[in-house]
Design a protein around this nucleic acid. Structure first.
Lengths: 228, 228
DNA sequence: CGTCGCTTTGATCTAAATCAAGTTGAGTGG
DNA sequence: CCACTCAACTTGATTTAGATCAAAGCGACG
């Protein structure tokens, strides 16, 4: 735990600029010694790599991020998609366990991990918050293991659509930032299976397209029954 | 609930009895207000159920535990096996996300979650320890998602054998507490596929059996190459 | 020493992968 | 504003890894 106090203890004098979607992250800007920076990444750009030092913790401001692991021959498993408001890159160890990449042009807010940890060392509520965030990632991973190990293609796609609808639908429509291959690598399927399954749901009138990535769910109940 | 024996804060006077494998959990008994209890469960007995209140945190003393999720039609995904020394049942929320069952006759040590949380509220090192433990569960889950989403049957079984060898081999031999069906439900495969894959590895001279559940790895290097 | 649960092995089936064209559509430059 | 390009997407044909169905072994325990 470093008790460093960087430049920005001035931050509590000039508090939280542009804290629109700030949530958890924004409130941190109130603490002296916590510097919040913004950075943008181009579509496809790597934010950090697997096994690299975990020096920063991130929050998506706009855009979308995928975090994934690779096997030596290129097979990829995406662990999660991070959408505006989501935090990612938080590790209790000093190394990132997955690679993070911008799916589209993406802006993130970031803070130094060692500053966060130092704060957690003096402020129990911050320590509790870090734990809670990691526990919520674990909860998602546990649900996803059930999906990957035991659900059918149709059940996986139904689960995916409901998750995305909940997380990014605006006025009943979701604009998916990721391609079919990303969805496949998230659900443990191929891009062709994703495409076929979406077509099937479309032909059953459960969803409507306006372009391949703009989807409206027409019958959430029926979809929820398919989740199994 | 069979045998029971409590050891209270009097523990720092009469220190750590039988703390052979105590690890993290044992040191908690040093704190006043932390009561460590022991319980034993019969083979197949449920320790806690999914969506039940998470009132206790557990450590395996002897035996083995599986934690899993079920789909409505009975399909099961085992998230992890817990072996002597392992903690399980730790949640930052108030509800268990998986069911825990004793695989064989099992003795656990347990403490009240709210006592642990109270301690974490005053002792940063305890708070940090809780976070670290959850983070380490997350790490395992992330590795397991890659296995479930992208590895072949052979790769899954190789990974499983190396994991178990590392965690429970004594004098080069591992005594698996779980049946083929459990292994299948952990690896997202059927029990028949587990059996066939083990037979195949046996015929290649990579492992030796003495009874279906006593396994000696003859060539860890070759197995590690199969992990992919 | 018979029974029952676990394991192995064989035969067959099938969901999803792979291979293979086309089609669409967003972005680029003329 | 149009046409060209390239990546993303869809759809079809075929293959295959692993599931399912089925029937013996085996081994621990009462």
């Amino acid at each position: 735990m470093l008790t460093q106090s960087t430049s920005a203890s001035a931050n509590h004098v000039n508090p939280a600029p542009a804290a629109v979607r700030a949530g958890q992250f924004g409130s941190l800007a109130m603490h002296p010694g916590i510097v919040v920076t913004e950075y943008s990444y181009k579509r496809g750009e790597e934010i950090y790599g697997e096994d690299e030092p975990a020096d920063y913790v991130y929050q998506v401001v706009s855009g979308a991020v995928r975090t994934y692991k690779l096997l030596n021959d290129g097979r990829r498993q995406i662990g999660s998609f991070h959408l505006p408001g989501d935090m990612f890159g938080l590790e209790s160890a000093s190394i990132h366990r997955l690679t993070a990449e911008a799916i589209v042009e993406t802006t993130v807010r970031l803070v130094k991990r060692r500053n966060l940890e130092a704060l957690a060392g003096t402020d129990v509520s911050v320590a509790h918050r870090l734990w809670t965030m990691t526990a919520s990632d674990l909860r998602h991973a546990e649900d996803h293991m059930l999906l990957l190990g035991r659900k059918t293609a149709l059940e996986r796609v139904a689960t995916f659509l409901l998750e995305m609808d909940r997380r990014l639908a605006v006025a009943g429509m979701m604009a998916l930032p990721m391609c079919r291959r990303d969805i496949g690598d998230y659900l443990g399927l191929t891009l062709e299976t994703i495409s076929r399954t979406l077509s099937q749901l479309h032909s059953q009138g459960i969803l409507e397209f306006s372009g391949a990535r703009q989807i409206v769910l027409r019958n959430r109940t029926r979809l929820a029954n398919m989740e199994s």
